[in-house]
Design a protein around this nucleic acid. Sequence first.
DNA 1: CATGAATGAGCATTCATTCAT
DNA 2: TATGAATGAATGCTCATTCAT
Lengths: 217, 217, 217, 217
Amino acid sequence: MNTPHSKDQEPKRSPGRPKRLEQDAPMNELILQTASRLFMEYGYEPVSLQQIAKVCGVTKASIYYHFINKSQLFTAAVTSMMGMARSSSLRIMQQEDLPLYDRLVTLAEVKLRFPHGDFETIMREAGGSLSQDQREEIRLSEEKIHDILVDAFRTGIDKGEIRHVQPLLMAHTLASMLMLGNREISKDFGTSPADLAREIIDMFWNGVSVGAKVSQS
Amino acid sequence: MNTPHSKDQEPKRSPGRPKRLEQDAPMNELILQTASRLFMEYGYEPVSLQQIAKVCGVTKASIYYHFINKSQLFTAAVTSMMGMARSSSLRIMQQEDLPLYDRLVTLAEVKLRFPHGDFETIMREAGGSLSQDQREEIRLSEEKIHDILVDAFRTGIDKGEIRHVQPLLMAHTLASMLMLGNREISKDFGTSPADLAREIIDMFWNGVSVGAKVSQS
Amino acid sequence: MNTPHSKDQEPKRSPGRPKRLEQDAPMNELILQTASRLFMEYGYEPVSLQQIAKVCGVTKASIYYHFINKSQLFTAAVTSMMGMARSSSLRIMQQEDLPLYDRLVTLAEVKLRFPHGDFETIMREAGGSLSQDQREEIRLSEEKIHDILVDAFRTGIDKGEIRHVQPLLMAHTLASMLMLGNREISKDFGTSPADLAREIIDMFWNGVSVGAKVSQS
Amino acid sequence: MNTPHSKDQEPKRSPGRPKRLEQDAPMNELILQTASRLFMEYGYEPVSLQQIAKVCGVTKASIYYHFINKSQLFTAAVTSMMGMARSSSLRIMQQEDLPLYDRLVTLAEVKLRFPHGDFETIMREAGGSLSQDQREEIRLSEEKIHDILVDAFRTGIDKGEIRHVQPLLMAHTLASMLMLGNREISKDFGTSPADLAREIIDMFWNGVSVGAKVSQS
DNA sequence: CATGAATGAGCATTCATTCAT
DNA sequence: TATGAATGAATGCTCATTCAT
C-alpha cells in the first residue's frame, strides 16, 4: 500500500542521536540509495522527500540534515548511481580477452536487470528544478559512462571488427536499445533477461536484414 | 487568467461564450493539443493545469468544463496524440510500392522531428495518478502504433526480406532507437534529422558489425 | 486563546465561490486591513499567513489567490496603510486657519491612538525578505508622509514661527516622539491620549528647559 | 558547524574542551554578545540559533549547553546588554560637575553610535515567545536605565534648570528621539554623529519654536 | 461556455529542541 | 564542554478541485 493514511504503528524513533550499535550502512548512504532507486523509477517531482524518508525510516528533517535540498539530493543520488554503473560497465568492458560481442552481451544483461526510467526523460522532467551546475555535474557523470562504450567501439573500428559508424552514435543507440528492459512488455517476450540481452545485442550487431552473416554466439 | 494579482495587462476576456471565429479550433482541441505537447515534453506531474490554461489563454476552471480532471485530460491528450501518430505512421508504412527500408527511413525522419520524452518513462511517472482503466486505454492506443510496425515486419519476414526475429521485439527496438532524436547530443552528431534517420535505420537494418552487406540507400 | 489545538467548531466554509450576498468589504481589502494591523503590531516574521487567514475566516490558499506571496502582501498592506495615514495627516495639516501648534496637537492625538511598532525597526526585521523594489516602494510611501510635515515646518520657518532647524530632521524627530504612544508605560502617565498629545507637542515646541516662553495652549 | 553538507572546508574543531586561550572571552559571553547584537539588529524571530552559532563558530547544540532555550538566551542577552548600557549611561550622567545639557549631549552621542532597533518594537515582536517572568526581568533591566535619566531630570527640576514636566515622560521622549540614529536617513542629514547628537539635544532642550532662548553650547 | 473565488491536501524547507557520545 | 544526528511542529507556497455566477 502506498497510502499515508494507514496508521501503521512503526516504533516512533525518539529525537536525539540514535544509539549507533547498528553496523548497517550509515544513514547518509541509505538515503542516497533509496533516493536513487525512487528517482530513477518515478522521476523527480513525483518522489517526495516524505516518501524517501519513510522508506528510510527517518523523518524529512533528517534528510535535510544530510542534504541541502531536494535538487542536491537528486544530483548526489544520480551521480553516485552513475558512478557505480560506470565501474560496473568498466569492469565488463575491460575484459579484453573476450570478443567485443560477448562483452556487450554481458553488459546488456546487467543493464536489463536494473530497471529505471529513461535517463534523458527524467532529466528533462527534473530540469526546471536543478541549477545549471547540477545539470552540468550530472551530464558529466553520464558522459563518463558513454565514454567507456565509445572507447570500445573505437577500438572495434580500428581492429576492423565493426563498421565505420560514429562511435558516440553507436553508444547512444545501444543505450537506447537497452532501455527495452524497462518496457513492461519485455516480460511478454517470454525470454529470460539473459536471452533478451543476447537477442538485443544480436540485432545491434547484425541488424535485422537478411544477410550473409552468421550469428556469432 | 485566474489570479487577479497578476500584473500583466492582457485584455480581459469578457465572460460568456466567445464568438467562434472559423479559424480557431474548438477550445476542446486546443487544450488537447497544448496538453499533449506539454505532457510529452515535461511529464505528468511537472505540468500544472494552470500552465496549460495559461498557454491556451483560458482559466483553469475552463479546463474543468471540458475535462473532468487532470488524469482524464492526460489520458485524452495522450491517446489523441497517439491516434495522430498512428495515422501518420500508417500512411507511411502503407506505401507498399516502396522498399521496407525506405519506408522505415521516412518513418524515422518524421519521429525524429517530433521531440518528446520516452513514453514508457512518462507513463511510469504518471502511473500513480491514473486509474486502471486509463492506463489500459493508453496502453491500447500505444499498441496500435506498434501493430503497424509489427505487421510490416511480419510481412518482411514472410518475404524473406528480414531475419526471423520476434516482430514485436523489433518494433520496440526500433522505437527505442528513435528516441535518440530527443537526446540533447543528437545535435552534436552534426547531421540533419534526415541524415540521422538514415544512419539509425542503417544500423537497425545492417547492424554495426562488418559484413558482406552493401548499404542499401 | 491562540493555540491552534482548540478544535473550535467554526462552520467550515465549503470550497467554490462563496455566495456574495454579503455587502461587507471584499476579501481583498479585509485581508489587507487584517494584515496591516498584525504586521504593524508584531512585525513581519512573527505573523504567519495562517494567522492572518484565520482572523479573516478564510484559508491560507485564499490569501494566495489575492496576493502573490507574503512579502507582496506585506508591501501592499503597509503601503495601503501609509496611504491612509497620509490622507489623514494631510487633512489635518491643511487646516491652515489653525495655528501650526494646534494642528500638531491634533495630529499627535490621532497617531497616539493608533498603536504600532516602530516602522524602521519593522522594516529592518522584514528587510531580508523583501525585494529591492518592495523596499523602495515602501520607503517611497513613507516619505510621502514625512513630506507633509516637512512642508508644514518649512512654512513655519518662513513665517518666523519656528526656528531654523532642518525640516526633515524635525519631521523625523516628531515622528519618533509620537512612537511614545506605543510604549506600554504610556498608560502609566495617567493621562488621556489627548492630554498626552498636548504634553508631547509642548515638549516638541518649547523644549524641556526653563525659559521665557509661555505655554501656548 | 552542524550540517555536514556544508561545503566550506573550515578546519573541523575536534570535540572535547578546547584549550582556553587567555585572550578569548569564555564561550558563555561570546554567545551572549553575539546574540545581543543580532537580536537588537534583526529582532527575535528572524535570528536563528543556527545563525548565532555560526557567527560564534560553534554548533547549535553548544548553545544549548550554555542556555536552556532561545527565549532564555534572548532574555540573558538583552538584560546583559541593558546592564552595560546602564553603566555606560550612569558613568556619563554622574559627572555632576558638567551641566545637564552637556551630559545629555555626550549620552546622545554614545547612543547614536550604537545602532539597534526600537526596543519596544522588538519586545512586542518577541513577546509571544517569552514567559511572564522573562518579560518582567527585561522590563526591569530597562527601567533601571530610564531611572538614571529620571533621576537626572528630577534633580534638574529641583534646581530650576528644567521645566516641571513628568520626569518619566521626559526620559521616554528623549529615548525615542535618540532612536533617530537608527533611521537610515540619519546619514542624509549630512552631519557627524556628534553634530546630530548636538542638534537633537538642542531640540529636546529648547524646542523648535522661536523664543528668547540662547543656544547653550 | 467560461470565470472568479474559494478549499484541502500536500510539498519543500526551517527551526527549536533533544539526547547519546 | 561540545558535537553529531536526529525529531516534531510550523511555515510559505502550489496544486487539483469545487461551485456560484
